[in-house]
Amino acid sequence: MASTQLHGASVGDRIYRYTTTAFALSIPLLLVLLAFEVAVAAWPALKAFHLGFLTSSAWDAVNGTFGAAPAIYGTIVSSLLALLIATPLAIGVAIFLSEFAPSWLRQPVAFLVDLLAAIPSVVYGLWGIFVLVPFLREQVMPFLADRLHLGDTPLFSGPAYGPSMLAAGLILAIMVLPYISSVTREVLMAVPRSQREAALALGATRWEMIWGAVLPYASSGVMGSVILGLGRALGETMAVTMVIGNRHEISSSLFAPGYTMASVIANEFSEATNDMHLSALMAVGAVLLAITLMVNIIARWLVWRVERRGQA
């Protein structure tokens, strides 16, 4: 019997298990710590201004009164504008790539669109300052206001400065497009063959198949991808800071300069002279964190639902 000695502990296994578990736990820990630290930094300003912080437009560092309404407004408007432009394009690209593109074209085009996501934000900003903004000021804005006679409508009124909500929306549209299109592509690919074949067997044209069978099946996932794009747009910092004009004002005109939450923080952080100003910036960050957390959770949930259904 001595030949069969089966005992012995596996110390290595225990170390391995503890280590990987600790690494895995670091992610929830990081998120909790992050939320906590941002809240701590924001606390003095939130305590001083309460809910008025969200609704007031007064941002006066000298007198120490702060209201984030213009930044919140600017964030929402620029992001929605970006989605308005990017969503149809991104879904079009995704449909093209998943349904129509010949296989030799699929990879290269997908690669090019994905490359848009690889360009650093600050490079977009540089391009925005020196190309997009002058182009808007000299071509697009005069065209919209004078040629199309939209200058009297609230959306397109006022002088054409260049740096503006419109510029921010456009540059954000370019930046979120690859995110929306790549997630949409994945969701479309997850639609089972049987759905497509059923439609084609009923005599549908290719477009009718997509419109009638594929998109309805994937709709909540596509919705999720758009909301993911929204999450990106809400928090995008550098490029927006460089083209939006940085002004604490709510204006109905897309030609007017504005602010977003992220760009307020980035732009004023280095010049914030007193603690209340700093804390107000951090409070803007806390609001941004809360909004993007919510948006992300909703988006993940929607995408997860479709992918799960695809597997089942």
Partner: peptide, 16 residues
């Protein structure tokens, strides 16, 4: 949570 963390704005990570 790692997907959520992934979607947070980088500026918030900076503040943290």
């Amino acid at each position: 949570l790692s997907d959520v963390l992934n979607g947070l704005p980088s500026i918030v990570v900076g503040i943290f």
